[in-house]
């Protein structure tokens, strides 16, 4: 007829628990990465503001005799 049901469960359950744990942890990690990726804050306007600051700084430094050339 086959293995008794109690033996079947006894022999397989201990091995499934760590597998469940690892799989759950992996799913949790992927979920967190996905959520974080969707909520990743970006700031494209900051790049424009930075460029303005760079132009301003270069003008001031050139007046003061600091070498800001790209050569």
């Amino acid at each position: 007829m086959g293995w008794p049901s109690t033996n079947f469960y006894d022999s397989t359950q201990p091995y499934l628990l760590p597998i469940y744990f690892v799989v759950s942890l992996g799913c949790y990690g992927l979920l967190m990465v996905g959520i974080g990726l969707m909520n990743f804050p970006t700031c494209p306007q900051e790049a424009l503001l930075l460029q303005k600051d760079i132009v301003e700084a270069k003008e001031y430094l050139q007046q003061k005799g600091v070498d800001v050339s790209s050569s």
Binding site: G36, C43, A47
Partner: peptide, 22 residues
């Protein structure tokens, strides 16, 4: 966090950063 952010990062860079942080 809110008020912070990045610019100039492609998807792979964001994925790497987020994965490393998690």
């Amino acid at each position: 966090v809110k008020g912070g952010g990045v610019h100039g990062w492609n998807l792979m860079r964001k994925l790497t950063s987020r994965g490393a942080n998690v």
